[in-house]
Design a protein around this nucleic acid. Structure first.
Lengths: 248, 248
DNA sequence: AAGGCCCTTTTTGTATGCAAACTGCTGCTC
DNA sequence: GAGCAGCAGTTTGCATACAAAAAGGGCCTT
């Protein structure tokens, strides 16, 4: 045994230099994922100028895969490309949020209908499990984990439709509004109500009762829209104040 | 006047060397458009391997913008990227077509509802004009122009919803099925029936009668699905025969 | 002092170069 | 003869190089 640390070092080297089994991901793909996360989680706020050189350094890649990633995010709508003038994080206007929610409403309604028809018992159980996990976060007042659970439930319902195209469309639109959602400051009353709505949704799902489920989903989404718009307004006000402060 | 041809030559030079006012489009953008057209119109058939060097030559660009275009088309779902193994035109399975039609059904239903509420008189008139143009093509038995008109009408209805997000989602999905649509061989009976359905759709639109309109759109799309699936089956059979012939 | 012009610097868009991965073929082994 | 190792050629993924466009800044003009 020449070196007790040999194994550990080899492991690290294998992970950093070359992933043998993990089938090393392509640079532009991981760049897309990382940038998307940064945008959705609000690290990169709407309107932020995306300097290629700076992002390259931050991600440790060259401009070629970065630019490919920006093109992808642009077709996803999260980034706006201005010819010869670079990329900026797409802004979210109130109108656009309303548009997105309208489309998501149609998609969720379809998902609910299909889920009632196609959902497996396992899928239903998983949704139930996520629901109880969410209840726990609600009881403890843990907002961020609650949001994550909440998202997973909605995604699980859409996935239970068994329609991959629907899942992709829904996920793409969802990424846009999640940006605003992360900074939503739920009142306790609205939070409690949202949980109650989820209870009813789960109930309808369990009975595979498509009609009422669609109505419940629609109302739930409508309430979410109100919350998101409020968050968006608050955000805009903050930005305005900051801008005003610059003039003081 | 030193040279009578001077103006013409200058014009050509200006167009080929540098577009001054037309704000020369970016190479990767036009590449996306050209490749998308080739895929949708069936020049590049599903499963075709996309060799970068060959496409570069064909489009007269280098690999960088071409690869950016492939990434974009991949996120649109029209091509599939195989890491380290290149890109192929995405295949259209029957299941996938059914999925797409299910989602498009939900989107068209929403579009119909919103159009009844938001459509301007001008938009309705434009749809009427397109409809009559389509009737002319039907009367003359001109299939390809009929399809184009047909597409434009459906897109115009979605646009009349006033929801840009809805338009984008619809257009993206529509690109996929248009591939199959181009090779659909409509029977005269089905063709006549489709025109009759359009007549009713236009009527409901004119009355801004959302409920019946949604039903009509849904039935119309269901009939289209049948036609597309038949075309897809015929295509698959052709491919199979060709493959079989190779063994003779 | 305000505005515009020109020059420098930065940034973007595209082409090219290079290394790793894949493909296909030859020849060897069993 | 089937199958596999190994090598040559091709293709992909990424980095870099270069040119055109935009942004910034100083100087001059008015």
């Amino acid at each position: 045994m020449p070196n007790a640390m040999g194994d550990a070092l080899d492991t690290i080297a294998a992970e950093t230099v070359r992933q043998p089994l993990a089938e090393r991901r392509l640079l532009h793909e991981s760049a897309v994922d990382r940038l998307r996360d940064m945008i959705v989680q609000g690290v990169l706020t709407p309107g932020t100028k995306l300097n290629e050189r700076a992002l390259c350094e931050q991600l440790g890649i060259s401009r070629t895969p970065l630019r490919e990633a920006l093109k992808v995010l642009s077709t996803e709508g999260l980034v706006a490309l201005q010819p010869n003038r670079g990329a900026v994080v797409a802004t979210l206007t109130e109108d656009r949020v309303r548009e997105i929610f309208a489309v998501m409403g149609a998609l969720e309604a379809l998902a609910g209908e299909l889920a009632c028809r196609n959902m497996t018992a396992d899928q239903l159980n998983e949704i139930r499990a996520l629901h109880y996990q969410m209840l726990a976060h609600h009881a403890r007042g843990e907002l961020a984990p609650y949001f994550r659970c909440n998202q997973e439930i909605h995604l699980a319902i859409v996935e239970a439709s068994g329609n991959a195209t629907l899942v992709a469309s829904y996920a793409s639109l969802n990424a846009h509004v999640r940006r605003a959602r992360y900074m939503a400051n739920l009142s306790q009353a609205r939070w409690d109500q949202a949980v109650a709505e989820h209870e009813k949704i789960l109930d309808a799902l369990g009975r595979r009762d498509a009609g009422p489920l669609q109505d419940l989903l629609k109302n739930h989404l409508g309430a979410k829209l109100t919350v998101v718009l409020a968050a968006l307004g608050a955000l805009a006000d903050n930005a305005k104040e900051t801008a005003d402060a610059a003039y003081d």
